[in-house]
Design a protein around this nucleic acid. Structure first.
Lengths: 123, 123, 123, 123
DNA sequence: GTGGTCTAGACCACC
DNA sequence: GTGGTCTAGACCACA
């Protein structure tokens, strides 16, 4: 997954979302050690301070745990990750439904379109 | 619906999308006359030239028809609008599915979540 | 009240405590506007970023409210301030009791000493 | 009790306070022999010279008595220890009251809070 | 080497 | 003018 940040919102908050996604999707598995702040910053081509700020935010949320000298680790609390994953999903669904309703689709039409395209994308 | 334009993409292309949406959702009905370029530009807090460019784009696609002296009108070609509406919808569904799959959801889970939230949002 | 920061703990966290104290003691009254970040930073002889961080922390706690262009204001939620005031007080009492018990005093002795000295300090 | 020294004040003066506390609380009883300077220094992870300086200070105050060949002993003068104990206590009470008054508490409130928390901490 | 903190200086959006 | 964000570069404690 790429480190794509746009200039229209604070970088650190986009980083928070990207890392959240990586954790929820299992790219950074439960209990695993994250790369160091400096390495992550290099990867994402941002200043280490900015990455630090993002990681601090994730720590405050409870998704990461810091061991001062050893590095940062993904929480092992499955329920916490489940909760975050669900929050992200709910956001996506909400946005999606709003857009579709704006366009004038009703639930049945959305369901059908979704079913059709899922087959196509999985195929 | 608001005229919300972000500074991270060409404004005229955002305007195209916004007007498309208005046409597809029936806010600008088939065959109806659009407000003047100047009025639209004022509404959207945008330079008239930019709005002009957006409208020209829509005309090229066939969604708008200009009658030199009378103004611009929405096409009356239902199939054309249906096509555009479908294109927009397909984009949304595609984006949505990609995000959900990134998060690790499968089709059944997406369907369930969608059904639950639809009830909630309609309620 | 002076801006006394010691080099043995993060400055920003000391600033948080100092400002909390000012709010609880009424030096920054409920609903009042705080000096600007830059002015506060100058007053406390710290970098504006450090003061910014402290204020952000206080905002997250709900003690301050930011109005983007107008400045920062103390919350008007009395219960919130009462809660913080009580937390600070409980900390002080706890520390005090620990020290006195370490010294070998019991509750009756502490009470007496406190009563005597209170008279003296108020006198 | 731990040998906790912070880097923000002269170490030797912190050692003086820590040893005073130990004497007042009875950890080093009246008339008892103190560990050697070297042992104390090792315990406190401090340079022997620094510990030496602290002990010299305590001797000057009369709390310790050196017998050239036998080592250092805690004074047997009860009134002396009582006096020191009282000085320390008075300091703590003073600091405590100042902080509470800064916070806007009055004597009655302080008394109540103290009574409540004492029950809790003893319980 | 790790994370944590601080400073200096810059730019932005908003009004 | 206000707050908010970002970068660059430095120093510290810990192990």
């Amino acid at each position: 997954m790429a480190w794509e940040v746009k200039p229209d919102r604070p970088i650190y908050s986009q980083l928070i979302e990207l890392i959240k996604l990586r954790i929820c999707s299992g790219e950074y598995p439960l209990g695993s050690k994250l790369p160091s702040v400096r390495d992550l910053a290099k990867e994402a081509s941002v200043n280490p301070n900015t990455m630090q700020r993002a990681l601090a935010g994730l720590e405050e949320e409870g998704l990461l745990i810091t061991q001062r000298t050893a590095g940062r680790f993904v929480t092992e609390d499955v329920s916490m990750i489940k909760k975050v994953k669900n929050e992200l999903a709910v956001d996506h669904v909400k946005n999606f439904l709003e857009k579709m309703i704006d366009l004038g689709f009703n639930y049945e039409e959305i369901k059908t379109l979704l079913a059709d395209m899922t087959k196509e994308m999985i195929k």
